[in-house]
Design a protein around this nucleic acid. Structure first.
Lengths: 256, 256
DNA sequence: TCGTCCCGGATTGTATACAAAGAATTGAGA
DNA sequence: TCTCAATTCTTTGTATACAATCCGGGACGA
């Protein structure tokens, strides 16, 4: 039943939040889930978000198997909403369905990672370019404020969150729902690779400069420059990622 | 259960299939499972494809409501697989969920159409550019043959099919799964607009020239030119679409 | 006449029972 | 000890019952 309205942007969109009052108690005689914050969200929706967060947070790692029953028990819902969530995550590319074995957290091989960055370079560039054309002053201000609030080389978690905020704001500033949706999906897939490259390669300072470069071009309403700046940013991120992956090949392999 | 393996490309072009290839009617409480020619895709999968085709074919028009029970009865399956199919179509952007009213075939407003074409221009250009770099000789030959097999100004249905084949082949030739998936989704969304612009604006001849221009650039392995040619192609299609929409505003409005 | 309240119908959300089919295990035989 | 086969286990696919909620219409009162 009550299922929050969903449009093309599944991520958030910063709706005023309030929502309709939403009746306090859940429907079932004995609502199992810890009195979480979303009374009006359907179980399917809720499960979807929970699993997504778990993947983002790295609690569920690539290759790991997900059993419907186990998950249902763990989240204290029935299989039905779990199935719905799994299907949606599969559509997002975060899960892979293996016949007769069920869902598995997607594993990205080298080729997939290359394709992912290639795609992101194009779309991130497009987003920045469009933002230069279409962003409202308020949106530009928001981006500026976000960059100013950069947490610097501190908590990797905060760094990742901040980075996500910056890019998410940039995506929205492009004012293209399809672009927004696609970039969000790509970002999610990136999470499968583990922690951001920022905190792992000491790139946070450089990244901030690159962010400022993008902002600068947007402020100047220079579409071409914004696109190039964004593409450069992603290429640098890719370089860092590749270094990380090759290092990892040496370091991680023996482990386990 | 048996659910055919699904990869990152749920769409692809392999739909050469015949209309109603008989649903996997097997497995009813008393059915010896007639050895179908396939591992028999699951009902959910089957339902998904059927609904998708129905939308593509225009049997289900934008704004139309889809009731789970009605659909289940019509396709002779239970609500469960129907629900799965509906969720997937929603993820593809072909359906919109309206709280307390269920699924509705997505309607694209003017803004959405603009965004769609904007996005397609970027990605189609990217695909052509990548194809120029990565397409195998076999793939290039396939594209060449397809263009040669252009049905010309005849049956609109054949024209649409051929056009889809050409573009689908181009997408695959880019060798990027994320790009492929996204372009397929965008193409599907286009189907919501109704028949191709080709058959409705007498653009088929021009389109063929544009296709040849793209091919030429790919054969020459000229990435930049391929990208530009593809972008030009989409821009022209967009122009045709806009003309059509404005004409439609005058002609269709009174109807109904 | 208009507004409000209430009830029945319609439709989705959720849980659960059952079926099917690969996967794993265990046993016997060579 | 190894191989093969039968049996059991595990897990998903499907159907269906039930619960909850919104929507529409109609009766009632102001």
């Amino acid at each position: 039943m009550a299922r929050g309205s969903k449009k093309l942007n599944p991520v958030d969109g910063g709706r005023g939040g309030g929502e309709e009052a939403a009746r306090p108690s859940a429907s079932q005689p004995s609502d199992p889930r810890p009195s979480e914050s979303r009374p009006s969200e359907s179980r399917g929706e809720w499960t979807y978000h929970r699993l997504r967060e778990a993947i983002q947070a790295g609690e569920l790692k690539p290759g790991e198997r997900i059993r419907e029953i186990e998950m249902a028990k763990r989240l204290e819902v029935s299989r039905t909403p779990v199935r719905e969530a799994l299907r949606r995550l599969e559509a997002d590319g975060l899960l892979t369905f293996v016949p007769y074995r069920g869902m598995v957290i997607a594993e990205l091989d080298h080729q997939a990672v290359m394709e992912l960055y290639q795609m992101r370079e194009v779309l991130e560039g497009t987003a920045a370019g469009l933002a230069a054309r279409h962003a409202s002053e308020a949106e530009i201000t928001l981006i500026r404020d976000l960059i100013a609030a950069d947490p610097g080389d501190g908590d990797p978690k905060a760094l990742a969150t901040h980075n996500r905020q910056f890019h998410g704001t940039l995506y929205r500033a492009a004012h293209n729902r399809y672009l927004l949706k696609t970039l969000n999906v790509l970002s999610d897939a990136m999470a499968l690779l583990g922690m951001t490259t920022l905190s792992l390669t000491g790139r946070s300072g450089t990244a901030r400069q690159e962010h400022e470069e993008i902002l600068s071009a947007i402020e100047a309403r220079d579409q071409a420059r914004a696109e190039q700046a964004a593409r450069h940013h992603i290429r640098e991120a890719q370089r860092a990622r590749l270094r990380l992956m090759f290092d990892g090949d040496r370091a991680d392999t023996p482990q386990d």
